[in-house]
Design a protein around this nucleic acid. Structure first.
Ligand SMILES: [Mn+2]
Ligand SMILES: [Mn+2]
Ligand SMILES: [Mn+2]
Ligand SMILES: [Mn+2]
Lengths: 219, 219
DNA sequence: GAATTAATTTAAGCAAGCTTAAAATTATTG
DNA sequence: CAATAATTTTAAGCTTGCTTAAATTAATTC
């Protein structure tokens, strides 16, 4: 397509649509930090390109083509993130921005080559799933927010919300990364903050932090 | 700067300016496949930004700032080329285009990291010099076009012209790559084509091919 | 169900980066 | 040095992607 704007719109629609597949223009505008008028404008173009179904004042949803395109963009983004993290050694709080600036430029050939180098990773550095070359996603894992784990439970970190870099940096600062095992030592009734054991050290994390870390139960 | 067009103009001016540092608008238009009118337009903007010295109908040259910026773009491009070639295994006839599409997106931080991973390469996959972080170029090597080598000479490939992919592909097809050693077995008077020995095989190459391969004498 | 509020679209306009055609300037040459 | 040629600039106009303000439509609430 060779059009950064359109690609960003498609990615955003895919990423932020509701479970029924629809999305409000409002939300797109929000996520892209752009006016509603601009969104209306672009929706007409995307509809014209056959990427979205759109009737004025009615709902918005990706067509089959649009979903395919968007999913490929997500794939490109996440493979970049893994590559930057694993191969280049970039910390997980910096890969998103860098990947975002590279995802439009790389050829599919390069993306596929990187994927191969990485041995076909299924998840990005934040635990988000990577669609394969055919658009297939790895089978979904059942996770719970760390904030729902109870005193005494042993869990493994499986995914973290990736929309705030300082949050990610904080996490790695206290030793939390993907696949890390934690034990919940205590949950304070006062503010629902948790004392967790990680690498044999104990740290206290707020309930807000805990709500943005997703885990598997291990016992 | 975050402006792909301007960056491409600066790179082109740097790359294609004459030895006295000037360049004609004409030539920029040519190299960027763009109209002269568009070039005039952009020159005003670049002058306004302090990147070029420009007076209408007079010569064009980069300011100190402009040269610095341009040199950094060349650096970014060439480090990408080395990275794609060495780390990702992309053939030398494909790295230029891919690097061109990535050079605007990457952060300087990423570029520096890649440079370090590559152990501070001095030349790109086609033998072109890479400015270091401070804009310093490796000291210039004295080379001659292969077409000027004489029967019996042993030479080493040091640089190839990189503006035609099929040429590059042809070269690697017959085993020519950077640092390769060759011996000139014969030069045909008829068309100045050469018979060279490479990896104990003999191949005939046209004088045009030979004129675009640059070598060191080895004896 | 009418009134209010929220969401969306239209209208008008702007900047960037192009185009072609015409005009102006500079360079070359007979 | 005058004529011609080459180069560069100006003028007018187009598309893309954005903006704000006003108008329209849909959704919510009393
Ligand atoms: Mn991301
Ligand atoms: Mn991610
Ligand atoms: Mn190149
Ligand atoms: Mn090169």
């Amino acid at each position: 397509m060779q059009n950064i704007s359109k690609e960003d719109y498609l990615s955003a629609i895919y990423k932020y649509r509701e479970t029924d597949g629809t999305i409000k223009a409002n939300r797109i505008a929000d996520k892209l930090s752009i006016s509603n008028a601009a969104v209306t404008d672009m929706l007409k173009k995307l509809a014209n390109d056959g990427f979205v179904d759109y009737k004025r004042y009615k709902g918005i949803r990706l067509t089959k083509n649009g979903e395919e395109y968007a999913k490929n963009m997500v794939r490109r983004h996440r493979i970049w993130e893994v590559f930057l993290h694993q191969i280049v050694g970039m910390p997980w709080d910096k890969v998103h921005e860098e990947a975002h600036n590279l995802e439009h430029g790389a050829s599919d050939e390069l993306i596929n080559k990187m994927e191969e180098m990485l041995d076909f990773p299924e998840f990005d550095p934040h635990g988000d799933p990577i669609p394969d070359k055919n658009g297939l996603l790895p089978k979904q894992r059942h996770t719970i927010p760390l904030s729902l784990a109870a005193k005494g439970e042993a869990v493994e970190v499986v995914r973290v919300n990736d929309f705030d870099n300082s949050f990610l940096k904080y996490l790695s600062g206290i030793g939390i990364k993907l696949n890390k095992k934690l034990t919940i030592k205590n949950v304070l009734g006062f503010d629902k903050s948790m004392i967790i054991s990680i690498d044999n050290k104990e740290v206290n994390i707020s309930s807000t932090i805990a709500a943005n870390v997703f885990v598997h139960r291990k016992n």
